[in-house]
Design a protein around this nucleic acid. Structure first.
Length: 972
DNA sequence: CAGCAATGCGTTTTT
DNA sequence: CGCATTGCTG
């Protein structure tokens, strides 16, 4: 039997009334992953703006289905809970909409809602065009048309093969085919001569299949269930369960024939808003019999009672309760996990405590629907010992307490009787999920997580998906700035990328800049990809047109745009091309007769000396360089290192050409400006738009690429040349807790003056300082700490995790942790210890194997502990960061005497490492370490000294006390 | 060819 | 700084 999958075909976008602003494709996609929905309706395809968004953000997948564009999906990867990331369940979308028809028939006003499905964007467009002639489709994503149900069905059927209609939530009183206040006594009466074209009906929240089975007139319809969600978190509260192929034709076939239709996921019908009869204003809830007894009038006020679904089913039923027609689907009755957790924890379903617990459960146990229906209870108990497992057991047995809904009031399903859950039990269950509540919870209220969500929120695999908060005032100032050059100094975790991308979006949407006239410059392709994805998400349909490029790619494109001038003015060979590393080596071997090793060595030396003044070059190097350049030129090649200088030379040689290039980018935004070298700074000056916007973004405190030519003070030099430039400083750190932010600030400023960047967020965990005897002991400490952080084998058990680097963190995924080091060579003992422990890890080595193999995106996002050099960690963030090798000589790295500038760069490197951490920072050192074979005694890094002892705690290795006697040795 | 002095490299990384 | 490689001299 092929595996089952779930589909939610009826939901709404943010273009419908009373829906969440988060009903956009990324949020829906993310929620689908969390719920375990493999197929989602888009909802609202009749709305032109939503259709434009669909066209911009989706791309075709299986027949009739669409997937989120990879650039967008890539940006969301980090927010998918670890156990919800199954590749084969990556959500697909199909075109769906809900249409309301209001019309008079046989003297009665009929209000009927319909779900419409289309086999693709073109068909949706066609149908929308026809419906647009009937009524206004722009006012509401769920349009209201003055059209008979039958006529709507006719329009749908005429819009092309595959277009179909499913009567929506057929029993609800106010808006449905069978509704007591709106509809008919049969589906056939509603759709008249075309009713035969229908093959499925949606049961709605307040009825379930067993109720529907009592009406023989519905036997020929496949029963479907959907969420009708108005916010992403409500997706999948009801759904269709299918098996077999995932495609639009297969879905229709399953609904028509039953082949591949498994059944439905349901609310307990009592939870629906219209299950029983009643009058909400007076709080009167009545069973059908009671309603009949009081003559359909509210006993309190005398107004008409709203007749609910149960009552209506009884009116139309021609079979007793309990009848099950042949071929009926399976029924899984579930309760949203948020509600269950709210009950178990004794707090509201939207509370922080519930969201935290949800994140843990999804990260560990997988998507919600599977988890509720099938997660093994032993595993549930392992993740969350306590009443949750028992609750799920009762849920699966259908042993629930039901308080039925009526007249628009949701019902309530409980798993535990009143008083069954002791407050103490609830508290302990809550403690499982909340990091800091255990020791001091003076009050019983939620621990409020104040961490802001501006942008640089930890990309935890287990984060729920809250929408972003509005920009803070400094971010806002940078986003809105208009006029002269803008310098944005953005500290760690301050929302730099968000500010940059939102500024770009602002320039386009509010200031009228054409997207193609906006240029964003970065250093790495990776950064460019990320920025592009985020710009696309912010500017659906337009972001793709913006130019987001690396310096080198821009320069190459610029040279290639002007081949004539490039030949004439900077002496490039006609039809020049970029030389790859192998080609450069081959050139030197074949043309200059150098050996392979000598050729590589020469290229290495040239690259190393490229940024030093030629007068400092070793003897002979200049001569060698001239020869190499000549050979390169004769071969019609340029190398990467020349690109920027050639582009600068070209722009300087031809002012007209420079002016032409400036027009191409009326808005120029440069990321990581602190890393520009002199040529790149010059390029920026040459390209600075005359009447547009120039924005330079970066952080001088994170300048760590001096060896590559980045010259400290790039911002200052720019400001000196442009006295009118506006400075904006983003100083709030939304990433690190206060302790980490302060400690990092002290390390950077050598303890003087500045109390670090201002940080928000909870933070009681101190920075751990650990001294190990040897590098092997250091590695074992890291592993033992990781085991504690992950809670050992019983993942969240309370009694573990008091050991090494603090207690277990809830919902911690392996990829939330990084181990950082100054030299790649320091990774060896870590690799060995981690491999032994079985903790999955990934070492990013600078060996560019990944690129050679065409990228390893999959590995990149795998849930593994990251091993990285400090340099490679820049721009990333982790909930937990270890920095190993905090020793003099390694931090700062020193071979001989160290210049002041180099010392400062090493200090900034340490600062960069510290500020990668959001929640926990552990600084480790070894007293003896073998470097290049020879063991050496190591002193602590001088960078540790300025950190206030109040912010740190010492943690000595308390690994299984193998060698207690060691402690008697003098500690020095 | 042995022996010694001079030189340069080590470390971070991107295109 | 300290080690390895290179290249020169005897």
């Amino acid at each position: 039997m092929s595996p089952r999958w779930y589909a939610d075909l009826h939901l709404h976008s943010r273009f419908s009334r009373a829906t969440s602003r988060d009903c956009d494709l990324p949020h829906l996609w993310l929620s689908a992953r969390q719920k375990g929905l493999a197929l989602l309706g888009t909802g609202d395809f009749t709305h032109p703006a939503w259709r434009a968004e669909l066209a911009a953000q989706l791309e075709p997948a299986e027949e009739g289905l669409y997937r989120l564009r990879p650039a967008l999906a890539a940006g969301l990867r980090g927010r998918v809970p670890r156990a919800c990331a199954a590749e084969e369940r990556e959500p697909r979308f199909l075109l769906s909409a809900e249409i309301a028809t209001i019309y008079k028939q046989a003297e009665r006003t009929r209000k009927v809602h319909h779900v419409v499905l289309a086999p693709g964007l073109e068909a949706a467009e066609r149908l929308s065009a026809r419906l647009g002639r009937v009524g206004n489709l722009c006012a509401d994503g769920r349009p209201i048309l003055g059209l008979g149900s039958r006529d709507l069905l006719e329009l749908v059927l005429e819009s092309g093969p595959g277009c179909c209609l499913i009567p929506a939530h057929v029993w609800t009183p106010w808006f449905s085919a069978l509704g007591s206040r709106s509809g008919f006594d049969s589906v056939d009466a509603c759709y008249a001569d075309l009713a035969g074209e229908l093959f499925a009906v949606e049961t709605g929240l307040s009825s379930d299949p067993p109720m529907n089975w009592r009406v023989s007139g519905l036997d020929r319809f496949r029963l479907i269930s959907s969420s009708d969600a108005h916010s992403p978190s409500r997706l999948g509260r009801e759904a269709v369960c299918l098996s077999g192929e995932r495609s639009y034709p297969a879905l229709l076939a399953a609904l028509r024939t039953g082949l591949g239709y498994v059944g439905t996921v349901e609310f307990f019908p009592e939870e629906g808003k219209y299950h029983l009869d009643g009058h909400r204003k007076c709080g009167a809830r009545l069973t059908p019999a009671e309603t009949r007894a009081v003559g359909g009038r509210c006993p309190t006020c005398g107004e008409a009672i709203t007749v609910g679904v149960m009552h209506r089913v009884e009116e139309l039923a021609d079979r007793p309760e309990g009848y099950r027609p042949p071929g009926a689907g399976q029924v899984e009755s579930l309760v949203p996990l948020e509600e269950i957790l709210g009950e178990v924890l004794g707090v509201g379903p939207k509370s922080h405590a519930v969201q935290a617990a949800l994140a843990v459960l999804l990260a560990r146990l997988g998507p919600e629907l599977e988890l509720l229906a099938r997660a093994p209870l032993e595993e549930v108990a392992r993740v969350a010992p306590g009443p949750l497992g028992e609750g799920l057991a009762r849920l699966r047995r259908g042993q629930v307490l039901r308080e039925a809904g009526y007249d628009g009031e949701y019902g309530r399903i409980r798993l535990f009787a009143p008083g069954e859950l002791e407050p103490g039990l609830r508290k302990s269950q809550r403690a499982l999920f909340l990091e800091e509540e255990v020791e001091d919870d003076e009050d019983d209220k939620d621990v409020k997580d104040e961490r802001d969500d501006r942008d640089e929120r930890p990309r935890s695999a287990s984060q729920p998906s809250p929408g972003p908060l509005p920009p803070d005032p400094d971010q806002q100032a940078a986003i809105l700035h208009s006029g002269g050059p803008l310098l944005v100094v953005a500290g760690p975790g301050s929302g730099k990328t968000r500010t940059l991308t939102e500024r770009l979006a602002h320039l386009v949407t509010a200031r009228g800049f054409a997207p193609e006239a906006c240029l964003v410059l970065t250093f790495t392709r990776r950064a460019a990809d990320e920025l592009r994805a985020r710009v696309c998400a912010l500017l659906p349909g337009q972001g793709e047109r913006a130019q987001v490029s690396t310096f080198h790619a821009l320069c190459l494109a610029l040279l290639q745009r002007h081949p004539g001038e490039a030949e004439r003015l900077v002496g490039l060979a006609p039809g020049f091309a970029l030389a790859e590393e192998e080609e450069r080596v081959a050139l030197l071997r074949e043309q200059a007769g150098l050996s392979e090793t000598r050729a590589r060595r020469l290229l290495g030396r040239l690259s190393r000396w490229a940024h030093a003044p030629r007068t400092d070059w070793p003897a002979g190097l200049e001569q060698d360089e001239r020869t190499y350049r000549r050979l390169l030129h004769e071969a019609g090649r340029v190398d990467f290192e020349q690109l920027v200088s050639l582009a600068v030379a070209l722009l300087e040689a031809s002012p007209a050409l420079a002016a032409e290039e400036r027009v191409r980018a009326r808005a120029l935004l440069v990321d990581e400006y602190q890393d520009v070298d002199a040529l790149q700074a010059r390029l920026v000056e040459l390209l600075a738009p005359e009447d547009g916007e120039l924005s330079l973004v970066g952080d001088p405190d994170q300048s760590i690429y001096g060896f590559r030519g980045a010259t400290a003070g790039a911002f200052e030099r720019f400001a000196a040349a442009h006295p009118g430039a506006r400075w904006v400083r983003l100083g709030r750190n939304y990433r690190s807790n206060q302790v980490i932010a302060d400690a990092a600030g002290q390390a950077l400023a050598r303890g003087a003056g500045r109390a670090g960047v201002q940080a928000l967020g909870p933070g009681r965990a101190r920075v751990t300082l650990h001294r190990a005897p040897t590098e092997r002991a250091e590695a074992e400490f890291v592993v033992a700490s990781l085991e504690a952080l992950f809670g050992g084998h019983s993942f969240f058990s309370l009694d573990s995790g008091r050991g090494q680097a603090g207690p277990a963190l809830e919902g911690l995924a392996y990829s939330d942790v990084a181990v950082l080091y100054r030299l790649d060579a320091l990774a060896e003992p870590l690799v060995e210890a981690l491999a032994r422990s079985g903790i999955p890890f990934r070492r990013r080595s600078h060996a560019r194997l990944a690129d050679a193999l065409g990228g390893d995106e999959f590995d990149e996002r795998a849930d593994r502990v990251h091993l990285l050099t400090l340099h490679a960690a820049k721009g990333l963030e982790f909930r937990v960061v270890f920095v190993v090798g905090c020793e003099d000589g390694l931090l700062p790295l020193r071979f001989g005497p160290l210049g002041a500038a180099e010392l400062e760069e090493e200090r900034r490197l340490f600062y960069v490492g510290m500020t990668r951490a959001a929640e926990r920072l552990i600084l480790c050192r070894a007293e003896r370490r073998a470097l290049r074979g020879k063991p050496r005694a190591m002193r602590p890094s001088p960078f540790l000294a300025p950190i206030d002892r109040a912010l740190t705690e010492a943690s000595d290795a308390r690994l299984p006390a193998r060698r207690r006697r060691d402690r008697q040795l003098p500690l020095l």
